[in-house]
Amino acid sequence: MDLEVKNLRKTFNLSRKQRKIERTNEKRRVAVKGLSFEAKRGEIYGLLGPNGAGKTTTLRCISTLIKPDEGDVFVDGMSVLNNSMGVRKNIAFLTNELKLDDFFTPNYLYDYFSRLHGIDEATAEKRKKELFKRFGVDKFSEVKVSDLSSGMKQKTSIAISLVHDPDFIIFDEPTNGLDVLTAKTVVDYLRDLRNAGKAIIVSTHILSVVEKLCDRVGIIIDGELKASGTLAEVKARDKSQDLENLFFTLVEESGGAKRA
């Protein structure tokens, strides 16, 4: 079973402060308007869209952090509405929104999240060694998170988000703020995970990441999926077969990215 997003719709109330900042009289905003797509095992699905398009909201619904107003998400056949605990057991969600407690060391945090996922100590220890080595966390595993650079923190977050070896991995802007070397490590690891049969969804507004990494792509603008398919299929929609051109055309057709 794969990951299936069906008719997802999510609306937010805008606070007076938000209305003032965004200079709007709208009291509610529809962030995601009936979105549907599928991410299969053994592939990387790229969710591409400008800022404020609804990418993060979609990922938060998939990861059970928020509930959809309408529609549903099925992860390995389990509904995020009816079996959120089951979904959480088999999903990894990594975003800048999720932070690590500055006071602890990567080592402590890894053990802590392993225990929360109910992983036995021997398995956790073995996997910790692999992940820490892969991301170079073993070199600073006993240094408090507060003393780590942002790249080190990002590597630690990735390792910790994967403690339970989930089949479904959701990464929001996976290379955001990373130096070239760390970004390459992350991209390489995502490819390895794909090859290991995991289903991966990455959200980004960086077109080069999508072109390098994704097997299939969905372009989301203003809460709606404007194009979807393999990279070649999506590119074919533009005369010049250029993803960037297509992206700008779709944004313009939608009246410009409202909050870009």
């Binding site: 952090l65 605990m85 999720l98 932070k99 690590l100 999240f113 929360l116 996922h117």
Partner: peptide
Amino acid sequence: GEKERGTIATLLVTPTR
């Protein structure tokens, strides 16, 4: 403090009731 620092969300995505 956990809400402010963004660490509570990390806990909420784990399979913890």
